[in-house]
């Protein structure tokens, strides 16, 4: 039976991990490779690097970071942020990423999803959707959640699937970093609308929130960041709660002495 996944997201900027609260006020929390390795040891099912660099110079470090990570990480690595074209996808995969997430580029030119899926398979193409409620509908935002578009989130998720995305990474902008829980209504609406796996993101404050996203929200995976980086909880504690809630969970690897 396929297990529900706990995915740890590391927001990176100029090669360091940061985590935004409502996509603002960045705080430095550490070295990406060391953190990724630590989370694998603790039982994380996947790692996501989201590059939030503002400039090309800062972003140039991302492929090198992916390469250094792939040398030491033996769980799937997704990278996103600034990926514009199928050639960018190729470079990311060659550098050591297993999957690549596309957000603004897919909104601006949806064909990029099909082009990447055709060349590398749907399983490595993640459509990243940032959504927030405006006037009663969920709208898609781009440019790191700052710029609203005319797209409605549910129909956009369906289009992403049709164009070849193998997963949807769904972030609630309203909830991101707030720790009040995932947007369950949004998550449920999207997971009911598409057949590809949905990763819920934005709002994790505790283990119950994670279980809700996977249970009531219908998500296949839950993405967490700040509550782990800040030491509020641990991967093991979250997975124990998932197991206690009756969700199928990958067995934690054997405990290893920590330094």
């Amino acid at each position: 039976m396929l297990t529900r996944r706990l995915i740890v997201c590391l927001d990176v900027k100029a090669g360091r991990v940061v985590k935004g609260v409502n996509f603002e006020s960045l705080r430095d929390v550490g070295d990406p490779v060391a953190l990724a390795e630590r989370y694998e040891q603790e039982g994380a099912d996947e790692i996501v690097y989201l590059d939030i660099s503002a400039s090309g110079e800062e972003r140039a470090t991302l492929l090198d970071l992916a390469k250094r990570t792939a040398e030491r990480l033996f769980i799937p690595l997704t990278i996103g942020g600034g990926i514009r074209s199928a050639d960018d996808v190729a470079r990311a995969l060659r550098a050591g990423a297993d999957k690549v997430s596309l957000n603004t580029a897919a909104v601006e030119r949806p064909e990029v999803l099909s082009e990447a899926a055709h060349r590398f398979g749907a399983q490595c193409v993640v459509a990243s959707i940032d959504a927030a409620m405006i006037d009663g509908t969920y709208r898609v935002f781009v440019k790191g959640g700052k710029v609203p578009t005319a797209l409605e989130a549910i129909s956009w998720a369906r289009e992403c699937e049709q164009r070849g995305a193998g997963e949807i990474l769904l972030t609630s902008i309203d909830r991101d970093g707030v720790r009040s829980g995932y947007d369950i209504a949004l998550t449920r609406a999207i997971s009911d609308a598409v057949r590809v796996p949905v990763i819920a993101s934005g709002g994790a404050g505790d283990a119950a929130h994670v279980c809700d996203a996977l249970g009531a929200g219908g998500a296949d995976a839950a993405l967490v960041a700040g509550i782990l980086h800040d030491g509020v909880t641990t991967v093991a504690a979250l997975k124990a709660a998932m197991r206690a809630a009756g969700l199928p969970v990958r067995e934690a690897p054997p405990a290893r002495a920590t330094a």
Binding site: L2, T3, R5, D45, D98, G166, V196, P197, R250
Partner: peptide
Amino acid sequence: LPQIGWNTVDEPTDPLFAGSGLRHVYYA
């Protein structure tokens, strides 16, 4: 679909499984 994530390996008979302790595996 796709099947993305960790699944169990059931009724393994290949000795490579016993040798490695592999039980949950990643699919894409």
